[in-house]
Design a protein around this nucleic acid. Sequence first.
DNA 1: TAGATTGTTAATCGATTAACAATC
DNA 2: TAGATTGTTAATCGATTAACAATC
Lengths: 211, 211
Amino acid sequence: MDKKKDISMAVIKRLPKYYRHLAELLRNDVDRVSSKELSEKIGFTASQIRQDFNCFGGFGQQGYGYNVKELYNEISTILGLDKRYSTIIIGAGNIGQAVANYTRFEKFGFDLNGIFDVNPKLIGMKMKDIEISDIDTMDEFLKNNKTDIGIICVPHTVAQRVADTLVANGVKGIWNFAPIDIHVPENVSIENVHLSESLLTLVYLMNDLDK
Amino acid sequence: MDKKKDISMAVIKRLPKYYRHLAELLRNDVDRVSSKELSEKIGFTASQIRQDFNCFGGFGQQGYGYNVKELYNEISTILGLDKRYSTIIIGAGNIGQAVANYTRFEKFGFDLNGIFDVNPKLIGMKMKDIEISDIDTMDEFLKNNKTDIGIICVPHTVAQRVADTLVANGVKGIWNFAPIDIHVPENVSIENVHLSESLLTLVYLMNDLDK
DNA sequence: TAGATTGTTAATCGATTAACAATC
DNA sequence: TAGATTGTTAATCGATTAACAATC
């Protein structure tokens, strides 16, 4: 595990893509794959693919390539998908609802154990068999239920405050959908989904092509 | 405009962040800002910020810094936010609904003009004053209504087919929420929001910190 | 004018690609 | 064995950072 020291963010961001494509190969009953074949499928160079895998130790075999099942399992473990994660959603608005209903996550091993909101109209309602609770009860919930990941779907004005509460209660991962840069201590991980930044990038690219 | 030639993707991806932070300064009635101040606020180095802005021509003034209003307008234009864009959503499930209700986009100048789905239960219902139409009518809709951006919120199995139809009807930008790599011609821009890849990155980072 | 800060060039750093020996 | 393909080192490319002259 010490090998895993300073993997660059560029490599890390490619891992889920490998995982997805390997899962597809596996579904199609493909046994082996070479870096060249993967390259054609994913769009990274074969050289880069081999470099990436070698950050974590060699999974391949000269003259043969990679065993799909084995490589899939390795990457699965590297990503941490051999464990389950308890999650809560804070903010039961549009995005919170969409995330709650995104069944794909259950398959990865994520358990949704709580949903919180301030809106009295939403509190008490059920989503995915989980009752939406008053956000004022979140602190107590966290003290009684070990929670790995907090999914922030509240307006940007309160997002940092929510994050602070999560961190104070030992949550170690924050998946942030609020359009703001949230600050957390070094021992907490954060991943942002900034939808508007994504859309603005698209618009720039569209206009750039017109030139 | 020729200056805008080969801006690297790294720079492009930072533009929306500049835009957001400048909008905030503007709201707070800040007149001027130096690259050093911006650096402390955004988290990029002052040097990088100056390099980035100089890709598009110098907007600053030695000894003074940058005029916030002016810089904001420049970046707004660079991003293409001086125009309006007509959009449609394909797939009125969880994510499609969330996007449709994400009011932030209207403010940027995006008009939602159509929503399409295959589900007979959804067809005819209204979201944001827009009736959900049968996806079979999309082709005709596109022929009669100039559409800039297609927002793909359908399952991954049909995403490429939807994209093909969009492209065939002159749509020049695709915002893809389906967990798949969509292929489009060179004159079409695509921006992916791969939620599961984002979540898997988060999990990797969480486990990495445990080491 | 003196101080501040940009615009821009040069230096450094990191990531990607190419090449090839090792070896299955 | 011969052919294929990895693992790994070296070369290249690109992006970030540092430095400083220009100038407001």
